[in-house]
Design a protein around this nucleic acid. Structure first.
Lengths: 184, 184
DNA sequence: GTCTATATTAAGATAGAC
DNA sequence: GTCTATCTTAATATAGAC
């Protein structure tokens, strides 16, 4: 099997147990591969598995979020499209965010630069849409960062409260809030 | 030394490495106690250390946030007081949140109920202030949850971007935003 | 209350056969 | 590409002296 086919299992495990909690034994069980086979696909061990996940997530972000945000459709509907996809990938707020998991685990330093780049490009893409709506650059940048913060935060709190309704509500209202004051 | 005196070191370690990454060896180093001494103070091991941290954090939340929110001062200044203390405890956005760390580590299930209770009581206290401002109950509850989400999210994103300015900005604007539309 | 020493288990990782 | 078997290290945890 090509190593890409193990990414979904890996993501499920890292989301469930965190970086440190997702042990090779658990990964072996979940993928059905022996430890030696895992090292055949990922010679660098767990770190390389996470890098492969980040590769996948970068592609996913580009294809599902960035391309639409950078397209020529109506700004509000592009933001709605983003929220639809975000809602899907976090399963309506029931799944935690891998970026947060990596930032709060012991391997923070190893993956920090890549997570930072991902946050930056996402925030910038949202800000670009808002500038297009006539919002000035500084406010656009702030609103875009606030939007990503709101998503991350409502995921945390949804996990904490065991109730994803706050996340669902955010996904409904976020596009409109972002465009607020632009008469679109 | 009474075991309370080790709480600050423990909190520093768990915030830096996460639950799974904060090993007994690191804890031994940081506290200057041998492993056996750690088990003398905390017979239940790491879990009991985390419980002691949560005890401390519950007291801290009550004394520094809840008591003020439930007091009879001006609503806006009570919310400002909350933000001042939150800003302190997270060191201006440079420190991550232990609740998020616990929710995203492998021991999630062990501590989930306590974290949930803490989030609930915090959100409810904010909502009570907003209701006092004349905001209807449902909106107050939503705004309060959004406020806690915004705090958690901006901490995550501040860690991710390596730039706490988003958190600092939130601490400045949050009290006003919460009271928005109440003519206070 | 703290220590040294050690037990036990599980983690990450590799060798070499098939 | 996958396996069994094994290695090494480090993790949690305890016994018993001081």
């Amino acid at each position: 099997m090509p190593k890409e086919s193990y990414i979904p299992s890996l993501m499920r495990l890292f989301r469930q147990y965190g970086y440190d909690g997702a042990t090779l034994s658990k990964i072996s069980q979940a993928t059905g591969l022996g430890k030696a086979s895992l090292y055949h696909h990922f010679p660098g061990g767990k770190d390389e598995m996470v890098e492969a996940m980040l590769d996948y997530l970068e592609r996913w972000l580009d294809q599902n979020i960035l391309q639409t945000l950078n397209s020529r459709g109506e700004p509000l509907s592009r933001l709605q499209h983003m929220c639809d996809r975000v809602n899907e990938v976090y399963e309506g707020g029931k799944q935690p965010c891998l970026f947060a998991i990596l930032l709060l685990g012991s391997a923070r330093d190893v993956f920090h630069d890549r997570v930072k780049a991902i946050y930056r490009v996402w925030i910038d893409a949202i800000a670009t849409v808002l500038i297009e709506c006539g919002i000035n650059q500084e406010l656009a940048q702030q609103r875009a960062e606030d939007a990503v913060s709101a998503i991350q935060g409502s995921l945390i709190v949804s996990q904490g409260l065991d109730d994803p309704s706050g996340f669902v509500r955010l996904m409904q209202h976020l596009p409109g809030e972002l465009c607020k004051g632009t008469l679109l």
